[in-house]
Design a binder for these strands. Structure first.
Lengths: 264, 264
DNA sequence: GGCACTCATTCTGGATCCAAAAATCGGAAC
DNA sequence: GTTCCGATTTTTGGATCCAGAATGAGTGCC
């Protein structure tokens, strides 16, 4: 009986273009000790979106997601609402949720704002920098430069920046930065997978600049790092948008092109 | 015990601490033509928090809210999740939701970041300014300077800034600004109600500066406007924190002290 | 042969019901 | 008299069930 159900779920997911197996695998990794199912589902779906398992434009049917993860629709709905607030998912009233895709214009904006905020955060942070922090940063930077695998790649970079800006003691500012990083994270990962390995040792270089103590130089290093990543992301996005006919109105096409770009 | 703090919180926090009547009245105003109940509840609760009907520290019991508004608990939960993402509500796992209160430090941060972002938005916007926009701005600015009543006051100001920064065509930037404005909106209203009427014609002055065309002067006007409001908000907040024992580090204590202040 | 209308299917959003966790209150022991 | 422990009650979080809206297919009409 349960096999029939699983079989049904498989066919259903194939029809809607959802990678149910990969989602189940992600679910397995997360099924350890959560206080509530809702936040677990949230983490699973966030991971899935960030790593491209759920590509931009992917239609998100509550029933299918619930079956793949093995819970009821309710926590899925909770998670989707949170993801909408994060800007990763888009709700169409009475017509379901879709993984939001980022336009090139939006990406440009995100990086412009990130530059404004992160330069400020860096300035504040350097005023409070200590040798211990530098040491931790060097370690985290090395990991961030090396890490390849999907979710770990995202996490490593987040940890690095969290430590970098933590000395500033500006929780609201960090929250804003995190939010912006979340919007572009998927595409950075895509770039990395496509072969952006030549980015070298960006994070270690940044650490060196911070250790040097010259705030305006460090700001320049940060700015150029952000610009480099931005340009790579834009290249991906522009290519993706050129490959589409009507733009956001064709979700299936979006999912296809982004998916192939990530794999290629 | 300091009587001055709790003006709004006093009446609201009787018994279980919820002003059910005022909430019902708000619900009535909103009960017109919504596509889904969830977003209606979201709007009602947002209004309630922004206007002080649900004061910071207020415990939010799902059942009570649902009954007051006249819906089931489910859309209330949806709304609370969204409000949490907005930073207006705080969830304590398995222990319920509470209206988040803002610390003085957080308020300072918000205004620092707003200054960064809004000066940039103004700069971009002025480059695209037209006489038609100026005319609309003047009208909206006048309304924003005059409007007294809770929800209308908030709305009028939002419309003004939306129009001011719209010419910049930076939706992501505006979204960020809006988010920050949401965090401090309640306290600005509080200041206004306490008697900040001497703020004069801030918005009209800003419009004049924009019309003048001198970007750096306009930026100065905006900066000083933000500083003035910030200082007023901080005055309110510092007074409030002085009346409390613990501070922001103990959420339970914060909620509790708000309750006891109400009873005292 | 193409277009429009209708009906059935599907999926979202809401309500009710149930279980588990936490707070509170009372009692007992020290 | 105070403190600790346990039971009761309250409240959240999750599952199932139900109704209404949107989509798509099929048929009839132009």
């Amino acid at each position: 009986m349960s096999e029939q159900i699983a079989e049904g779920a498989r066919r259903a997911s194939v029809g809607s273009g959802l990678n149910s197996d990969a989602l189940q695998e992600l679910a397995g990794k997360h099924q350890t000790g959560y206080r509530s199912v809702g936040v677990m589902v949230y983490d699973i779906l966030k991971d899935a979106i960030l790593t491209g398992t759920l590509p931009p434009g992917q239609k998100l049917r509550q029933e299918t997601l619930a079956e793949s993860i093995g819970v009821s629709r309710l926590p899925v709905r909770s998670a989707l609402i949170q993801l909408e607030a994060d800007g990763l998912v888009e709700f169409h009233e009475r017509r379901g949720a879709v993984v939001k895709s980022l336009s090139a214009d939006q990406a440009r904006e995100v990086y412009d704002i990130r530059t404004l905020l992160e330069v400020e955060a860096l300035r504040l942070s350097m005023a409070e920098m200590t040798p211990e922090r530098i040491a931790r940063l060097r370690e985290l930077g090395r990991t961030a430069d090396v890490e390849e695998e999907g979710a770990d790649f995202v996490d490593a970079r987040t940890e690095f920046y969290a430590e970098l800006y933590d000395a500033a003691h500006r929780p609201v500012l960090w929250e804003m930065i995190e939010q912006l990083r979340l919007k572009v994270g998927r595409y950075v990962l895509g770039w990395r997978l496509v072969g952006g390995a030549e980015h070298g040792h960006s994070h270690e270089a940044l650490v060196a600049a911070v250790e040097g103590g010259d705030a305006s130089y460090a700001a320049d290093v940060l700015r150029s790092h952000l610009e480099r990543v931005r340009d790579a992301v834009l290249e991906l996005l522009v290519a993706g948008e050129a490959g589409e006919a009507g733009g956001a109105s064709a979700p299936g096409a979006t999912a296809g092109s982004a998916g192939s770009a990530a794999r290629g």
